[in-house]
């Protein structure tokens, strides 16, 4: 048994320590918002936050994740600026890639409060969206940054 801290709750899982966090979140804990796409740390779609930092859950074992705080999209408040902006800018097409991209955005905006266009492009250049929602992702990040700034006052 390994204990994981997911979205603020301690969860016991019965899986071998080398199991990728991705599969434990999806199959053992039912958090299917965490998506499998490449399995080789190429696409960013399986991204979750580990102690606030974006990590690719397909490339990290539960053993490595066990000490930290895991956050999935379910763990973000429904009125989180990133979620609000993603709806307002009508970002998703199929939507499958979006939870991972949104979590990568959360990490990015925590580090860079007022990003320039170029900083947004650089921060999001290593994720895949086959549907081509990129222009709207950019717009939504700008808006999420503004909303966050408003929240901080």
């Amino acid at each position: 048994m390994i204990t994981l801290n997911v979205n603020g709750t301690q969860r016991q899982v019965d899986a071998t320590p080398d199991t990728p966090l991705l599969w434990v979140l999806r199959d053992n804990l039912g958090l299917t918002s965490v998506k499998y796409t490449c399995g080789i740390a190429q696409c960013g779609i399986c991204t979750v936050l580990l102690d606030g930092e974006a990590v690719r859950s397909c490339a990290i074992s539960i053993d490595e994740a066990a000490g930290g705080e895991v956050t999935t999209i379910e763990g973000l408040a429904e009125d989180h600026p990133v979620k609000i902006a993603w709806i307002e800018k009508q970002v998703p097409q199929c939507g499958y890639c979006q939870p991972g991209i949104m979590l990568q955005t959360v990490d990015f905006l925590n580090r860079v409060e007022k990003p320039s266009d170029q900083e947004i492009i650089d921060a999001m250049d290593d994720v895949i969206c086959r549907c081509g929602s990129h222009p709207r992702i950019k717009e939504a990040i700008v808006q999420a940054a503004e909303l966050s700034a408003g929240k901080r006052g």
């Binding site: 299917t32 998506k35 709806i87």
Partner: peptide
């Protein structure tokens, strides 16, 4: 109009085939 399926997709609630 806003797309009816977007809020669930943003909240991570949409159940895709693989889910």
């Amino acid at each position: 109009r806003d797309r009816l399926d977007i809020p669930d997709k943003v909240m991570g609630k949409t159940v895709y085939g693989i889910d």
